[in-house]
Design a binder for these strands. Structure first.
Length: 700
RNA sequence: GCCAGUUUAGCUCAGGGGUAGAGCAACGGUUUUGUAAACCGUCGGUCGUCGGUUCGAAUCCGACAACUGGCUCCA
């Protein structure tokens, strides 16, 4: 049995497998017990791989019966029997021939020999390296091809539960058969299992989708707007505005210039950049601009006229020739009529050196050109919604002659892109179809590259500090020299050069990074930044890519010192990723308890009662705060103060200023901070000054 | 797109072949209040959409859509 993670095509070595933790052994063993139980119910089940995973285990099975959660109790019942029987997990060493024979007899991942071979196991046996020993594990009648390790006995599986079914392709390849993946989890004892499910409940409560709705940050309106197209409500938009402000300030200080570009572009744009057909699947289908009726009618008239004139000339040509030449021309003309085109006739005339009168040939050629032109007049223009900003930025680069003195040129834009993610892929704000990217493209010379790349990394670290992100990994994706010219542009020197430069920067800045071969973009190495929200969900937030291909495809050049034109390097970078994903992350990161500078509602002023002087005093405070761009609201109604506080706390308002007669008389406000409770009465002026200060320095 | 599950009021959820329920929110009124909910009342749903079975469907069946968890790709 294989513990392959489909992302990692390299086999796990036996040493690696031996490192399996105690809990992983429990889960891996439970997968075997699951297979045992399924076989008791459905003896013809074919098993593929059943490894332990992060929160449990799964086993991939091929079975004509569709397993649904309704089957779980029945399967779990059988599993319990197997655990109760307390069979030992026996390790059996076999040679290759034996394994092959048993798999052929259907004995592997089975309770007995079967008429049909254990087909996936056959495939797995074949893929075990020659020098690696082969072993089985046996519990009761169940024998599985498996490198182990396992717990001693089935009874050592303390507590387990099947959780869900999913479909998965064998080895993660969609050309392979589709299998049913049964997921479950197991623990050493019932207490830990219960804790795990309690934790899952907690996770659900902190999910950005739930908090997003509760706090009124965004909504999805699949019926009217469309799936994956979030609407930012005022409170969510406030967060987006703060992030943009942060980005603008940071980028301005780092020498970026801001640009603005349209959301659509012509087909030619993406043909040139190389995204079509490479990226077409991920783009919305194009808009085709049909001609207005009058122009269309005129274009059609032109085409008809051109066609008649062409046919007339060809008619004369046919009359002027004879024999084989006539036959040939007639044949090709006939073919062309069926294809709705004309040019082939003249090509044939030229290529086969047919003997036609030169002046007629020249006339026909001219008419053919008119025909082609008329035909182009009927072509519709295609526009695509942009899936990325780079081509637009490239056009800005190309808009004026560039000198080496202009570089580095750093074009920044919070551009809204649209990606046609598959319907099953959409997840709340994590994967959407409209995305506002914290995008920028840095055009530079090779000499400037290291400094620019380093500056980008420093920007990431600066942001991590502001948001208190401590756990992160930079995944440095490099190319595979064996796939140059296929998966990666064929520029061995540039690959080596840029990858070395990037690696050096990473090492020098002591950044926590992980090198992943063979995962680069087709146009250059890249870095993805992975972070984890407090509930353990992984987010790929930011990306940082080196591009030495697009600038050349798009014909971008700068005039260098030596008066020659050179192609710049381009760095694509998006430290804050997209609003959608970043805010989704922040919601879970802060569990909705945003720091003051980010909080949608920063301050709420609550009055004790609704007596007029008190309300006037409170209103003046709200006004003063709002005059300083603080998002402050008031709650001046007749509710009891406890009720007002409860509502403010539930709305996760950062700072509550409670005002009663006592406070007013002393020119005070009573401060209450969300999650910190009552901080007592303080001088109004002091409190306001502190609020402004905390916002300005983006205090955590 | 594929597999499975889900879809009942603005939100969180109960119910279930005889025609729809709670809490919160909203609205109206009473209450004049000191740090996590004062009280009364009102409004609100073709039970995701379309079709079928049935005397009768929100309930059973089917198709579709959306959402959720996975597979694949990726910010």
């Amino acid at each position: 049995m294989e513990a392959d993670k489909n992302k990692q095509p390299e086999r796990k070595s036996l040493d690696d497998r031996a490192k399996m933790t105690e809990l992983e052994r429990v889960r891996h063993s439970c997968a075997h017990v699951l297979a045992t139980a399924i076989l008791r119910i459905w003896p013809d089940a074919q098993f593929a791989a059943g490894p332990p995973v992060e929160n449990g285990f799964y086993y991939d099975v091929e079975l004509s019966h569709r397993i649904s959660p309704e089957d779980f109790p029945k399967i779990e019942e059988e599993m319990k029997k197997e655990i109760k029987a307390n069979h030992p997990f026996e390790k059996i060493m076999v040679n290759r021939e034996q394994a092959w024979e048993d798999a052929t007899k259907g004995r592997l991942a089975a309770l007995a020999e079967r008429k049909v071979p254990s087909k996936f196991k056959l495939d797995i046996v074949q893929n075990i390296p020659k020098d690696e020993p082969i072993s089985y594990y046996k519990n009761g009648d169940f024998i599985d091809l498996c490198a182990g390790p396992h717990v001693m006995r089935t009874g050592n599986i303390g507590a387990f539960k099947l959780t869900h079914v999913a479909s998965a392709y064998y080895k993660g390849d969609e050309r392979n058969p589709q299998l049913q993946r049964i997921y479950g989890t197991a623990f050493k004892n019932k207490t830990q299992l219960d804790e795990y499910f309690k934790m899952l409940e907690e996770t659900k409560r902190r999910d950005h989708r739930r908090i997003g709705v509760e706090l009124g940050l965004f909504v999805l309106d699949p019926e009217y707007v469309g799936p994956g197209l979030p609407l930012w409500l005022p409170k969510g938009a406030a967060i987006a505005e703060e992030l943009e402000k942060l980005a603008k300030e940071t980028e301005f200080a780092a020498g970026y210039v801001r640009v603005k570009t349209p959301h659509i572009a012509k087909e030619k744009m993406y043909q040139t950049s190389g995204h079509l057909p490479y990226y077409q699947e991920s783009m919305f289908p194009p808009m085709e601009l049909s001609l207005d009726p009058a122009s269309k009618a005129e274009a059609e008239r032109n085409l008809n006229k051109a066609e008649q004139e062409f046919d007339e000339v060809m008619g004369r040509m046919k009359r002027a020739v004879s024999g084989e030449t006539l036959t040939k021309i007639t044949q090709v003309l006939h073919l062309n009529v069926r294809q709705g085109s004309k040019p082939h006739v003249l090509k044939t005339v030229q290529e086969t050196k047919l003997d036609v009168p030169p002046e007629l040939y020249a006339e026909a050629l001219a008419k053919q050109r008119t025909f082609d032109e008329a035909k182009r007049g009927l072509e519709v223009e295609k526009y695509y919604l942009k899936a990325m900003n780079c081509p637009h930025h490239h056009r800005i680069f190309a808009a004026q002659p560039r000198s080496y003195r202009d570089l580095p040129l750093r074009l920044a834009e919070y551009g809204c892109c649209y990606r046609y993610e598959q319907s099953g892929e959409l997840i709340g704000l994590l994967r959407v179809r409209s995305l506002n990217m914290n995008d920028a493209h840095i055009y530079c010379t090779p000499d400037q590259f290291a400094a620019e790349f380093n500056a980008v990394n420093e920007m990431y670290l600066k942001y991590f500090k502001i948001f208190g992100i401590e756990k992160y990994v930079m995944r440095f994706s490099t190319h595979d020299p064996a796939k140059l010219g296929q998966k990666f542009v064929n520029e061995p020197e540039l690959w080596k050069q840029t990858e070395d430069m990037v690696r050096q920067v990473l090492v020098d800045s002591k950044i926590n990074y992980l090198e992943v071969p063979n995962e680069a973009a087709f146009y250059g190495p890249k870095i993805d930044v992975q972070v984890w929200s407090v509930i353990g969900r992984e987010f790929t937030l930011a990306t940082n890519q080196v591009d030495f291909s697009q600038p050349r495809n798009c014909g971008l050049t700068y005039r260098d010192r030596d008066n020659t034109d050179k192609t710049p390097l381009c760095i694509h970078r998006a430290p804050l990723g997209t609003h959608e994903r970043f805010i989704g992350f922040l919601i879970e990161h802060y569990a909705g308890n945003f720091p003051l500078w980010l909080a949608p509602e920063q301050v709420r002023v609550l009055t004790i009662g609704d007596e007029e002087p008190l309300v006037d005093y409170a209103k003046a405070i709200v006004q003063e705060l709002r005059a300083h761009m603080v998002r402050a609201e008031g709650d001046f109604g007749t509710d009891k103060i406890n009720g007002k506080i409860q509502r403010a706390e539930e709305a996760k308002v950062h700072t509550m200023l409670v005002i009663g007669p006592r406070d007013m008389q002393a020119a005070n406000v009573s401060v209450r901070v969300h999650g910190k409770g009552n901080l007592g009465a303080k001088a109004k002026a002091e409190v306001i000054a502190d609020i402004l200060h905390a916002i300005k320095e983006r205090r955590a």
